[in-house]
Design a protein around this nucleic acid. Structure first.
Lengths: 141, 141
DNA sequence: GTGTTTGTATCGTATTATAAGATATATTCC
DNA sequence: GGAATATATCTTATAATACGATACAAACAC
């Protein structure tokens, strides 16, 4: 059981190391994490970001200010509660996050379409779909 | 073709967001990248690290100094060329990198062993093995 | 409607990270 | 022995990170 888990993790990190984007703008760890939270969570505001990256609300507010300066993020307000900020990624922000968490499209193209049969590619996509499906709502600890 | 690539990337980031480790020590972006280089490359020294993260050799040297202070990394010297440093991850460094790039073992355990049949798990592992195999030596641009 | 809570923003301050030029040293190559 | 190579250190500069204190407006409580 531990063997399969270790194997999958080894494959996971090897694949990412091989296929990730190389030429990336300078960006901090916290910035990437915040962009991820905004993209993956529905209606994230300052408070949600602060909880997600485990910093105080004022620190989170500062982070967001910098991300807005860089045009990665913009603010809207909730219509239900005018105090609440709703954060959204700009096109640039989506792009930057993509290049810091996704696999390089050119490399994927080579792997999936030049080095695989249609049937092999299909098997890969089905396996990832299955894993994503079963990973939904896994609980922490 | 673009559709399959976008789909795979979407699945990739969703799976990582769901299954990654949450409780992590503070560590910078550059530190993670350096630890990855040391782990995945054979016999990385200061020069290799500098090239990999695209900074000057003196900056790379400073980074390594800090990583050694934190006991994530230690130095040996090449026996062939005594000028050359060979960097290695300590057990702590391996552990820290693991928690910043791998999938959470407890979560994987739930997904692979409580929510999948033997046959499904087998299909996942085979798909990842295939993808890793074909990803080998993909060239940049 | 006044007081409290909630969500966010800003100011001040401190520490750490990041980066590179200048310079130094040890080893290897020729 | 001199040049090239690999690394280390010192200095200096800027940006990132973090939080306490404070402020304020919207929402809620009664």
């Amino acid at each position: 059981m531990t063997k399969e888990i270790a194997l999958l993790n080894h494959l996971w990190t090897d694949i990412y190391y091989q296929l990730r984007y190389i030429h990336q703008e300078k960006i901090t760890h916290q910035s990437v994490r915040i962009l991820q939270v905004i993209q993956k969570e529905e209606e994230a505001g300052i408070k949600e970001v602060a909880e997600a990256i485990q910093v105080s609300h004022n620190t989170a507010s500062e982070h967001i200010k910098r991300l807005i300066e860089k045009k990665y993020v913009f603010k809207t307000r909730s219509s239900k509660d005018e105090r609440k900020v709703i954060l959204r990624l700009s096109d640039l922000g989506i792009d930057v996050l993509y290049r810091h968490s996704s696999l390089d499209e050119d490399k994927l193209r080579q792997v999936l379409f030049e080095r695989m049969s249609d049937e092999e590619r299909q098997r890969i996509l089905e396996a990832f779909t299955l894993l994503k499906e079963r990973a939904k709502d896994v609980h922490d600890l």
